[in-house]
Amino acid sequence: DRIFMTRTEALEFLLKAHQTAVDKIGHPSHKQTPADHAAIEALDRLLLDVRARRVDQFQINASAAQIIVTD
C-alpha cells in the first residue's frame, strides 16, 4: 500500500509516531530495551531527513504502508 502526503503531513505523522514511541518507553509498566531507543533514534533521523528534503518516501516498519511525500 502507498499513502501520498504533503511534506507537512508527513512531518506531523512522524512527530506523532515519535511521541508514541517516547510515551511507550516512558510508561512505568514497559521495560526499556535497546531496540526501543534505536527506534526513536531512527525516527529522529527520518524526521530530519524528511524536513531537509533528503527523503521523499519512507516506511516506518515492514508491515506499514509506504509513505510518499509530495510537494
Results as ranks from 00 to 15, higher is better:
A39V: 13
N61Y: 09
G26T: 14
P34L: 10
R7E: 03
L14W: 00
V55H: 01
H27G: 10
L14H: 00
R2E: 06
V55I: 13
F4L: 10
F58A: 01
V50A: 01
V22P: 01
F58W: 02
D36W: 06
T6A: 03
Q66N: 07
L15R: 14
T6H: 03
S63V: 10
E41S: 10
R51Y: 07
S63Q: 13
R2G: 05
V55W: 01
V50T: 02
R54Q: 05
H37N: 11
A52G: 07
L14F: 00
R54Y: 05
I25V: 11
N61E: 12
G26H: 14
K24F: 08
D23E: 14
A17E: 13
A21C: 05
L14Q: 00
T70F: 09
T70S: 11
A21S: 04
P34Y: 06
L48N: 15
A62S: 11
A35M: 10
I40W: 03
V55N: 02
A42N: 09
Q66R: 13
Q32C: 08
L14D: 00
A17I: 10
L43K: 00
R7L: 15
H18A: 06
I3F: 05
L46A: 01
L46P: 00
V50S: 00
F13K: 03
F13R: 03
F58T: 00
L43I: 13
R45V: 05
L43E: 00
A52E: 15
T33V: 08
A35E: 14
L14M: 01
T6E: 03
T8A: 14
I40N: 02
A38H: 09
T20N: 13
R54K: 12
I40L: 12
A35C: 05
R54W: 04
Q57L: 07
Q66I: 15
Q57E: 11
R53E: 10
P34G: 07
K24E: 10
L14A: 00
V55E: 02
E9M: 06
I3Y: 05
R51D: 05
A62Q: 10
Q19V: 05
H18K: 15
H27E: 11
V69W: 02
R53P: 01
T8Y: 10
D49K: 03
L14G: 00
R51M: 14
G26D: 10
L48P: 01
M5Y: 02
K24P: 03
A39E: 13
D71K: 05
N61T: 13
A35L: 09
G26C: 10
A21R: 04
Q66T: 11
D56F: 12
S29I: 07
R54N: 06
A17F: 07
I3C: 05
A65C: 07
F13H: 07
I60P: 02
V69M: 06
R45W: 03
L43Q: 01
A42V: 12
H37S: 09
R54F: 05
S63P: 06
K16N: 11
V69T: 02
Q32M: 15
L15T: 14
L15N: 12
T8R: 11
S63F: 11
E9F: 02
H37M: 13
T70P: 02
L46K: 00
Q32F: 12
T6I: 02
V22C: 05
A10M: 02
I68E: 03
Q19A: 13
H30A: 09
M5V: 03
K16I: 12
Q57V: 13
K16E: 11
